[in-house]
């Protein structure tokens, strides 16, 4: 599904963040990305999402060179991804239902279908009975769940999760784990970036460990 081939990525502060980096991720796979802060986990996720261009090398998504595609085509591919990143942004004055339905609106789904799917996604993260509240009225924890609902509402084929679940109550962590697990069982590719020992990382899955400054592959732990 996703293939990094001889990718280089540098920042002024991290001149050797990725050097000659290669990775192949099959459809329906679960990948744990583990590493300390600054090791490039988020950068890798953003590159997969088509949001951050590699310095050189190729990144293909379903055989298409992601950064050779026109911006519109890349946006269309992103519609098939569910992005769960820290610091969620919402339509603050709009209802939770509107927020979750936004990606569906971008996809051009009819109003009724948008509403049904959004309500269903809210239900799955435990916000089903609060759908008429505005995003501004939610607690930090509920906002993060709202982002999960928004990410899954579009039935993504790829879920990219950046670790933000520290401090979540056990019950809700379990809910998110179950949710991601069910999507994975349904054939969705899942990439989770987290600190070593992170709660959402699947012990059975393949793990790629990144270090500061240069990444290297530890190998498959699965």
């Amino acid at each position: 599904m996703i293939e990094f081939k001889e990718v280089f990525k540098r920042y002024p502060a991290h001149p050797n963040l990725f050097e000659n980096f290669s990775l192949t991720l099959g459809a329906g796979e679960w990948l744990n990305l583990v590493g300390p802060p600054g090791s490039g986990k988020s950068t890798l996720l953003r590159m997969m999402a088509g949001l951050e261009k590699p310095g050189s090398g190729t990144l293909t998504f379903n055989g298409q060179n992601l950064y050779r595609l026109r911006a519109t085509a890349r946006s269309r591919l992103r519609q098939r991804m569910g992005l769960i990143f820290p610091d969620p942004t919402f339509l603050e004055e709009h209802s939770l239902l509107d927020n979750v339905a936004l990606p569906l609106d971008i996809q051009g789904l009819p109003r009724k279908e948008r509403s049904t799917r959004a309500q269903n996604a809210l239900q799955r993260v435990g916000l089903g009975n609060q759908s008429s509240l505005t995003a501004r009225q939610l607690s930090q924890n509920a906002r993060q769940r709202l982002m999960v609902a928004r990410a899954i509402s579009g039935y993504p084929v790829l879920l990219l999760v950046d670790d933000f679940y520290h401090g979540w109550p056990q019950e809700q962590r379990q809910l998110l784990e179950n949710l991601l697990g069910s999507f994975h069982q349904g054939g969705v590719t899942v990439v989770i970036a987290g600190l070593p020992g992170g709660n959402l990382l699947s012990p059975k899955a393949r793990t790629l460990t990144l270090s500061v400054p240069a990444p290297h592959r530890i190998g498959d732990d699965a």
């Binding site: 911006a71 992103r78 992005l83 990143f85 919402f90 936004l102 971008i106």
Partner: peptide, 16 residues
Amino acid sequence: QGLHSLLNLLGASSAY
């Protein structure tokens, strides 16, 4: 501006 980065993240084209 916040909305635009959000729309970008959700796969909205620049035309959208």
